[in-house]
Design a binder for these strands. Structure first.
Lengths: 134, 134
DNA sequence: CGGGTGTTAAAGAAAAGTGTTTAAATTTTA
DNA sequence: TAAAATTTAAACACTTTTCTTTAACACCCG
């Protein structure tokens, strides 16, 4: 209840990995299988991803939801739409088309595949024209 | 699996709260009890705390564990010990006594009560003399 | 090819988290 | 002080996560 997301087991593995040990070496050290080390490490990385996403969400609380990019939309079309919707509420987005696409890809990589959106993306903008995707 | 820590329910409550609604108003809106809203809101805040703590942990991966402050230790004694241990590995801590105490209180408030430590605190220092508590 | 490294899948048991209700206690505010 | 708002506690059903094993699969390198 008091601890963060990462379990002690996960921390253990991450530390050993940082030291450069292989999964097999760690498995021997803590007496389990390398497959298990792999699983634990993956869970740890996933937890870190979740933590980041959670804090990202906080920004959307101060921002306005201006648009939902629907599954199947072409990324470039989505970007055009974002500019349009931001204009409607008199906010100038602080990205040009190219860097906006990059920002999107960085923020929600798993929801974009090639030129197309694989899963709905909610778009938020704050007063400064900064964008968040949730 | 794909989502962050905050559940949809929790987001809903946080958004309404941000808008200034009371717990009772939200309870009526989403047809449940105000006590439930309280619980959900608290869980959300707790999840945000966890997310922050998780990312803090990442810093300790690049840092060296120099000391464990044991339950019951006087905060000022702990600080002295931290300076001593950092010196041993030739690192100059980037805080004076007072700001170090403040840094500790901010970082792990729940583990310090008055002048004393309530729960073991692991102390990490990186090359720059920055400190992390885990 | 064979060995080392990492991933994946399936399945199970234990632990932790979530949303909920009811009821009581505490804090804030008008 | 009284009413309103918020918090806490306990209990329950349900879902999710975690760690684990075993077994198989995909690479890369010499």
């Amino acid at each position: 209840m008091k601890q963060g997301l990462i379990t002690d087991r996960q921390k253990e593995v991450l530390r050993y990995r940082k030291q450069g040990l292989t999964q097999q070496q760690i498995a021997d050290l803590i007496h389990t299988s390398k497959a298990n080390i792999c699983t634990i490490e993956k869970a740890a990385v996933e937890n870190i991803r979740k933590a980041k996403e959670t804090l990202e969400f906080l920004y959307t609380l101060d921002a306005t939801h201006i648009y939902t990019i629907r599954t199947g939309t072409d990324v470039l079309d989505a970007v055009k739409e974002i500019f349009t919707e931001a204009e409607k509420i008199h906010i100038k987005v602080r990205y040009d088309t190219i860097s906006l696409v990059n920002r999107m890809r960085e923020s929600v990589p798993e929801r974009i595949r090639g030129r197309f959106v694989r899963e709905n993306i909610d778009v938020y903008v704050n007063e400064d024209g900064e964008l968040y995707f949730g």
